[in-house]
Write a protein that binds this DNA or RNA. Structure first.
Lengths: 134, 134
DNA sequence: ATAAGCACCGTAGTATAGTACGGAGTCAAG
DNA sequence: CTTGACTCCGTACTATACTACGGTGCTTAT
């Protein structure tokens, strides 16, 4: 998919056209090429990028963090250490999220199981078990 | 921990005192008991609840969704089907999040590995690989 | 018994992340 | 060559989730 307009980009990704401009303004989307008449021109990569942004948001990353994720690339050997450090931090962060989600999932599964054998009543909030106190 | 004040609750959970009142207003925290003079009284369970809210937020749940999660309990046998339906939906949602996070994690790990053998340069955005196009 | 430190309340302000508006120019189908 | 759909832009508005303010009342340590 090459040379698509902002309207199509918005349509393909399910976001608002104005949101595309907004993402451009805050540096989340690269400044696009323009046609002679000044229309923005996008392609595949922009679609991918927005889909990634959409998912990352649902995973609890802020736009600022998403920007950081998207900027994680190794540019001509230099700054490799920085990239590595950030990536390692992000990995830890992601691992913690996965752990918590697994814990939430297992509580939900337990709840469904209890629902199946009708009889049991939980008057306390079972989901609270998903978080460990320290 | 019993009979703690709103200030202590805020301190233990790392949230702002005003946020506690806000959570109460939107029904995310139960209406607490009051002292004779009208002070809110909290305990362990409220601490747990707020810690859960804090984590759930970082996992990309909105306050509305968190409320739904916290209300997932089986009350005296009835409405068990509803609870089950909601829980099953939430499980699917959580599974999708876990999958996406695993994919993001593996991209980040690949990046760190590339960083380690110095030579490779990635000029494109590697994190975009974490989302599959369909 | 008095001052510092909490808590009460409603209301207003802030940050983040969009979303809408409206007047003007552009493109493409008939 | 016009009409309708699309795009441009800046600005302003909205929703969510807090966060601060400020006047008053309560609690507690000296």
């Amino acid at each position: 998919m090459k040379n698509i307009t902002v309207g199509k980009l918005a349509k393909y990704t399910g976001i608002n056209l104005e949101t595309v401009r907004y993402y451009e303004k805050i540096g989340l989307l690269p400044v696009p090429e323009r046609t002679e008449s000044g229309y923005r021109v996008y392609d595949d990569n922009d679609v991918k990028r927005i889909l990634f942004i959409n998912r990352a948001k649902e995973l609890g990353f802020t736009l600022k963090e998403i920007k950081e994720l998207l900027n994680l690339k190794i540019e001509s050997g230099k700054k490799c250490g920085d990239v590595k450090n950030i990536a390692v931090r992000k990995i830890k962060n992601v691992e913690k999220k996965i752990e918590d989600l697994i814990r939430i999932k297992s509580v939900l599964e337990k709840l469904v199981a209890q629902c199946s054998n009708e009889s049991i009543t939980t008057n306390e909030c079972p989901i609270l078990e998903a978080i460990e106190l320290n």
